[in-house]
Design a protein around this nucleic acid. Structure first.
Lengths: 344, 344
DNA sequence: CCGGTTTACGCAACCGGTTGCGTTATCCTG
DNA sequence: CAGGATAACGCAACCGGTTGCGTAAACCGG
């Protein structure tokens, strides 16, 4: 950094006032005359002066920084396409609000690194996407008094906020769509059940099955990791078993891709012999054969809501700490339209 | 932040020394007795003292922060699966080296925001993934004297470093693989030609075609955006034209997905009638039907190399500013194996 | 044992903002 | 016009580290 940028005292000297006055003028505080204020802001503009965030942090104790968790292990979290989209929404909201985003990389061999970074850098608040309420890190952060907002998980702790979407009603809608199309033997291929979103999806599925009563002949739920190969194997077992389902609701698009794969290798036609739905609206869902019916989460809204909740918590403004946003079912070719005659 | 954490003077008082001595002891500087040093580090450990990065920044002028560009518009850059993987590699390297990563969100309506953030936060160096040498931002940053490393682009400016991979030889290898399998009518479906990676891929393709001489009957190059729908349309035109190709080398997996789509709708068999290859090794490449032959870039190595180059530039250590890393061709089902009899 | 060098540390200024308090000038009201 | 209230600023201490310089003590060789 060769360029010695002007300090607030340089600006003050040019304007013939003291540094304190410049500070007050910049921050819109009272105690500065109208013409003085104007003169100062002119000089600031023409000098291209930008207040040094570091110095401001030191004196105010606030950094205007929010940390976002970035798990280095668990690459599936970060590599999942929802992650960058969330990050973008957070970044957008942060930029508008004058905050910067610090990546909180979390590796298995440095468990204290996130907490250390939060205190070292005076991070004002933390967003934890895809980290559960049982994560010990959450406890560490709340013990510090740092505001925390979870995304995609729900916590009972009153001090932590969360933003989530309607996994349950989404699963329910998809299930109903299957039933409306005449499917009678349903399977929910869920993800790991400790994931709170999966619990909700399960609840929605079973709620609809229960309500449908005799319209459904059989309903089962299995759990697989969010992994295409594992899903293929499980689907092969299901589809070549005694009572193969005619509809599989999957808890992720990667699982659904595995199911499509299994159906193909068994010579089953999708959606004629088998209806398949996914979750997440991953970009590749439009590229599969057939294209995948799935559930889109309002990621941009989720990110924005999380950021705004965090800002409110930082400023100690009252705010709802529980936000649930609506999902949207994206109907494509892997499910048949409603009111088709049921298979004989 | 309720917890008033101890300052360096508190530690000094407990150790019965001055703050300066504690500072020297922490940073391994000379001028501290062995037993004093030991006593101080014990107290630091038992108090859980962490040096305040803000204060240190202010006095040293260095922030131990590196900025990573995050274009909010141009979501295709960020949503591309290579982005999070790069980010992870950068984060990993940064964490090891004691740096933190600040996201430099760039939006169209705030063109100066990145530069402002770099000066405001005293960012030590900037990584620009997927930003070209002609980007005005690059100029702004170098004018500031900030070290910059590009990823995936090459610049002639001596002051900026870059890390890239062998797009040219990768394209060449794929093309040769096509020829070895008996293909004779080739098309390169390239991305936007202003992208430097696309220039290199084009060069590699044509180099191989030229060298193959009479083994190739025809060779063409077309340019489409990195977009599946656009690629489908273009591929339909090509494949239903007068002299349809028997091999299409694509500059991205998304383009290749479009080609697969077009082939399917024309009733062409891949790879029997048509060989298709992609680029980037996107996760969905293993899920397409047929699975996609593609090129994998060493993203983790690229990220690490970029980070380490940047650290060296920041410390004014000598370092290579041009790094090219090797790619790897991932052979799957969309290309046929070599030495098949050429089509009659 | 003595003079000079080295070592170990304290002191205080500094980094660049913010903010409470004190002072002076201006305004308003009776 | 006198008097107090108010507005507009300056001053200086602070935030929590770092670092150049000064000094006293320990050490060294001759």
């Amino acid at each position: 950094m060769k360029s010695d940028r002007p300090t607030i005292r340089d600006i003050a000297a040019m304007a013939g006032v003291s540094a304190g006055t410049v500070s007050r003028a910049m921050n819109g505080l009272p105690g500065v005359g109208a013409d003085t204020r104007r003169r100062i802001s002119e000089i600031i503009a023409e000098q291209g002066f930008r207040v040094d965030a570091t110095a401001r942090q030191l004196s105010t104790g606030r950094s205007n920084t929010l940390g976002v968790l970035f798990p280095l292990h668990a690459s599936e979290v970060v590599m999942h396409p929802i992650y960058p989209e969330l990050l973008g929404a957070l970044g957008d909201a942060a930029e508008r609000a004058g905050y910067d985003i610090l990546l909180l990389t979390m590796s298995r061999d440095q468990p204290a690194h996130v907490r250390d970074t939060v205190v070292r850098r005076r991070v004002d608040g933390v967003v934890m996407p895809a980290a559960g309420p049982r994560d010990p890190l959450l406890r560490q952060l709340t013990d510090l008094g740092a505001p925390v907002v979870l995304i995609g998980h729900r916590s009972r702790l009153p001090s932590v906020g969360w933003v989530d979407c309607t996994h349950d009603t989404a699963a329910r809608e998809v299930t109903r769509m299957m039933l409306d199309a005449g499917r009678r033997d349903l399977v929910l291929m869920n993800g790991p059940v400790h994931v709170s979103a999966c619990k909700l999806r399960s609840a929605g599925f079973w709620a609809e099955v229960t309500e449908a009563g005799p319209a459904v002949a059989s309903a089962r739920e299995v759990s697989v990791p969010f992994d295409t190969a594992a899903a293929t194997a499980e689907a092969l077992t299901l589809l070549s078993g005694d009572s193969p389902p005619d509809a599989i609701v999957c808890a992720s698009d990667t699982i659904a891709a595995g199911v499509l794969d299994a159906a193909r290798s068994l010579g089953l036609s999708v959606p004629d012999d088998l209806a398949v739905s996914g979750f997440d609206d991953s970009p590749f869902g439009a590229l599969t054969q057939p294209t995948l019916t799935t559930v889109r989460m309002p990621l941009h809204d989720i990110g924005r809501a999380a950021a705004e909740m965090l800002f409110a918590m930082i400023d100690q403004r009252p705010t709802s700490r529980r936000v649930v946003l609506p999902t949207e079912v994206v109907v494509r070719a892997s499910t048949s339209p409603a009111f088709m005659p049921p298979a004989p």
